[in-house]
Design a protein around this nucleic acid. Structure first.
Lengths: 371, 371
DNA sequence: GTGAAAGCGCTAACAG
DNA sequence: CTGTTAGCGCTTTCAC
């Protein structure tokens, strides 16, 4: 296989037109509106183009003119290695990619990892819209995206005026989980949660920190727990909440260890993700604790490994989430943005999956009335 | 959080300049060359921009002018679901993404799945270069990419004139593996291979089909096997080669079953990927065959699961492969393409990993001389 | 069916 | 430090 030498100045639509002795319009039509010129002329145009090594209309120039880039940007403030390893992120990514593929749109991963304070990449991205996922709400990249005059869809984030949103009802889902644990009779619980903010904090998360959490999903899930357990008389300030910055099974294990060391009385470990719960499971086994006889452990997300482990968890359709976000952005009833308030919101169904890791507490300390 | 209403016509650099009573250059400088104007003026420009809701210079217009899009395209003729599930593809993808992140470049996934005959997406992508991975050499998208006047790096593909390449020495690697199996004494072997062409063929792959394979890596690996075994007197045309279109562990299992049913005399199963080998392993266990006592099984790639299973395989650094491709494209000694022949090639090291799935054949049929 | 004119929004010399 | 001048390469009315 060989290719044209490209030493000489690239041919342009104009030069091609000159060469052929026709107007630029005609050449443009040859590519974009075949029905606007005779087949014979079109053939001639394309043939000459081939000879001159003209690769067709320049995409950027065309984009400038048509105001369409043919791609959407994905903002994901995480190490890419995370995005490509975490099952939940991967599922979302896959869903988004599928939606893009459906509509023939490119999906541009924006380089906006943590520590990359340079927002310019967001400003420089020639895209028709943005999808934002797993970004803390105080992230400068996010506000950069919101400044751009293109449609944006946010996944899992709280509602922003004028920005479409896709996500599960985290509060309801976590409330269901909390109720399940409450109904089993647990009152002495511990929480394992993911990163609450950009600043690293591997250890207990204070009430203040919980409330100020910049990761919406985590904050919401913790809130739901606090409320539900508060309703049955559990004082939230006494509930240990251990946070981990990184999100691996190993981190879940160390978090569980830390929590159980300090609070051996705990009968249930509620985790805000399956990964953490899987780690907790490992740590429990390591300590010879039987699950669920000695310790109840619950997760969140419903990833494949969790299902395999029989984890009690909340399942959310991650791929659908991504796909919905992509669809919303790509083939919306793109009302001419005349109505500023008509933001679209898609709430996904979640399902409480009761597995084999939750049961009544060891010493069933039910609150009986009377002697 | 609220955002500016965008009902009114978007502000442009020109309108902002007019509003301020300065030239467009000055506004442009305020964004691109802060040192070219007084801090005070710059502050005023930016402030007014904010008030007018001017989001900064339009990326597409800028790209047209500067001839830089700030993104590279990734051509991957596969279902995205494959790319996001297969460990090898994922590793490569991660490596590429890392390289892009390093240089602040966007990574645009091109929608070019199989069945998508529309090459226009490749023509329409506003990118500064392409990375091509896992694409059959007769794919129209590939030729579309090669027409574009931008640098391109191909992963795992054969050398194309003027196109940089990154990949392992598949032939050498597979030859090493073949020698290992030969040295153990195996002469009655069977092969499991991945898709050889776009047209589905789940079953035996004829010699012709093997030679005409459009997937370079597969063809190369088979060639290496044919040559090495040919050298020790094994007539390749008698060696069963079973092909699978899809690439899952389950497919590996059915392929192994198909092969073993038809050729029970086989003492070694050489697979062109770990995934297939893992499936073969499953099938062997299902049949009560002991590995490696009754059957030797080998893989290729060195994925984590293979390592875990103790598979004898060839390890290739997939993430490095992706990273090398990205680096090559992004920060090359971008010689001004004056020298047409100076194509860069990076060959990655592979390592034969002898695990616990290869051993001498059951009935050690060594060829002794004399009675 | 074909062409002429008018920009899309921006940046890069180069002069002042 | 600031402005003037020229486009980058293309599409798109709107006449012919």
């Amino acid at each position: 296989m060989s290719r044209p030498i490209r030493t000489r100045r690239q041919a342009t639509l104009a030069s091609l037109a000159a060469e052929l002795g026709v107007s630029r319009t005609t050449v443009s039509n040859a590519y974009n509106r075949p029905d606007q010129l005779s087949p014979e002329l079109r053939r001639r145009v394309l043939e000459t183009a081939r000879q001159l090594g003209y690769p067709g209309p320049d995409p950027v120039a065309r984009s400038l003119r048509t105001r369409k880039a043919g791609a959407v940007g994905l903002l994901l403030t995480e190490n890419l290695s995370y995005a490509f390893r975490d099952p939940v992120a991967l599922g979302v990514l896959e869903g988004i990619a599928l939606a893009c593929e459906d509509s023939g749109t490119g999906l541009q991963l924006l380089p906006a990892g943590p520590g990359n304070e340079d927002v310019s990449t967001v400003h420089k991205a020639g895209v028709d819209g943005f999808i934002v996922y797993s970004v803390p709400d105080d992230d400068p990249h996010l506000s950069g995206v919101l400044q751009r005059p293109v449609p944006t869809v946010i996944i899992d984030q709280p509602l922003i005026d004028g920005v479409d949103r896709v996500g599960p009802d985290d509060a309801a889902a976590m409330t269901a989980m909390a109720n399940h644990v409450v109904e089993l009779g647990h009152r002495s619980i511990g929480i394992l949660c993911m990163r609450l903010s950009q600043d690293r904090n591997d250890g207990p998360a204070s009430m203040l920190r919980q409330h100020q959490a910049h990761y919406h999903t985590q904050r919401t899930r913790l809130d739901a727990l606090a409320t539900t357990f508060g309703n049955v008389g559990v004082e939230w300030s006494t509930v240990p909440v251990i946070e981990r910055f990184d999100h691996t099974v190993a981190d879940g294990a160390t978090a569980a260890a830390e929590l159980l060391d300090a609070n051996p009385e705990v009968t249930a470990l509620i985790c805000t993700s399956d990964i953490l719960a899987l780690g907790a499971l490992e740590e429990a086994h390591r300590r010879g604790l039987r699950v669920p006889a000695d310790l109840t452990i619950t997760g969140f997300d419903g990833i494949a490994d969790a299902q395999r482990a029989g984890l009690t968890t909340v399942h959310q359709p991650v791929q659908d989430k991504g796909h919905a976000a992509g669809s919303l952005l790509l083939n919306p009833i793109r009302k001419t943005s005349t109505v500023p308030g008509s933001t679209q919101v898609i709430t996904l169904d979640t399902e409480l999956k009761i597995g084999t890791t939750s049961a009544q507490p060891r010493t069933t300390e039910q609150h009986w009335f009377g002697p």
